[in-house]
């Protein structure tokens, strides 16, 4: 279970990205976070695995205080929390297999991994992860030779290597075609059914309805909605997205 209490993040330049956010996520939920670009979705996800240091507030992960953890504790917590990104964040010049193996770094022998030496079982595991996302044949290609959809699948395989209990997905399909978006989200749905808790930020209303078990809406760093996907209709969606949505309509007139 993940518990966020009064989470606030103020950047050094004075931008308030998150303002007193509190919520809980039960194990096995598929939580979707919606909101405009700049509403604080990415900051929220990154506070959970402390890629970004919160300014104040607490985050508990199975009753461990993430916000107070020492660097080595943070690393131990991080390895149970997978993360995938809008821009995939693969090391473009490394092979697909190396990218996937790097998901195992938190468990690997620190010295051997620095030399690029991996135990056979980790290699097997990486190949199985790639098989699972349907691109085992690409294992030895450079990551940047793959298409966007394939790169995101490598990103998922990398997260799978962590045996994650929680998966953070920051706009995982915003850079992909709608058709590909479904194929990627179906992998997340599958993982969710296997018991992995998912926190995912999304942009499209139909995707929210299709995949979420619960939705949180952010606007200017404030939580403005917390409920079931069925409670969100067009009007509610526009409320969360505010003037921007109206501007888009005005521009199209």
């Amino acid at each position: 279970m993940l518990r966020v209490e009064h989470l606030t993040k103020v950047y050094p330049n004075g931008t308030v990205a998150l303002r007193d956010i509190s919520f809980e996520v039960s194990d096995g939920e598929f939580l979707v976070v919606i909101g405009l670009s700049g509403s604080g979705k990415s900051t929220l996800l990154r506070c959970i695995n402390r890629l970004i240091e919160p300014t104040s507030g607490k985050i508990y992960w199975n009753d461990i205080d993430i916000t107070n953890a020492s660097p080595s504790e943070v690393r131990r917590i991080r390895r149970q929390i997978g993360m995938i990104f809008q821009q995939f964040n693969l090391v473009k010049r490394s092979s697909v297999l190396t990218n996937v193996l790097s998901g195992r770094l938190g468990y690997a022998n620190p010295w051997l991994s620095l030399l690029g030496v991996w135990p056979a079982e980790d290699r097997q595991k990486a190949l199985r992860a790639l098989e699972r996302v349907g691109i085992a044949d690409k294992a030895n290609q450079r990551a940047d030779t793959l298409s966007g959809g394939q790169q995101q699948r490598v990103g998922i395989a990398r997260a799978l290597m962590q045996d994650p209990r929680l998966l953070l997905a920051d706009e995982p399909v915003a850079s992909l075609d709608p058709v590909l978006a479904h194929s990627i989200l179906q992998y997340l749905e599958q993982l969710n059914k296997e018991g992995v808790t998912i926190i995912c930020s999304l942009h499209f209303l139909d995707l929210v309805h299709r995949y979420a078990t619960r939705v949180i809406g952010l606007k200017d760093g404030v939580k403005v909605f917390d409920g079931l996907p069925t409670e969100i209709d067009r009007a509610r969606f526009k409320e969360i997205y505010g003037e921007e949505a109206q501007e888009v309509r005005a521009a199209s007139l």
Binding site: N49, L51, R75, R76, I77, R78, R79, Q80, I81, G82, M83, F85, Q87, F88, N89, L90, V91, K92, S102, G103, R104, L105, G106, Y107, A108, P110, S113, L114, G155, R158, M161, Q162, L168
Partner: peptide, 16 residues
């Protein structure tokens, strides 16, 4: 910086 973020998120240490 994307890959650095991604690899940090796996629980890797600084040298890794």
């Amino acid at each position: 910086t994307g890959p650095i973020e991604a690899i940090s998120a796996t629980g890797a240490n600084r040298a890794q």
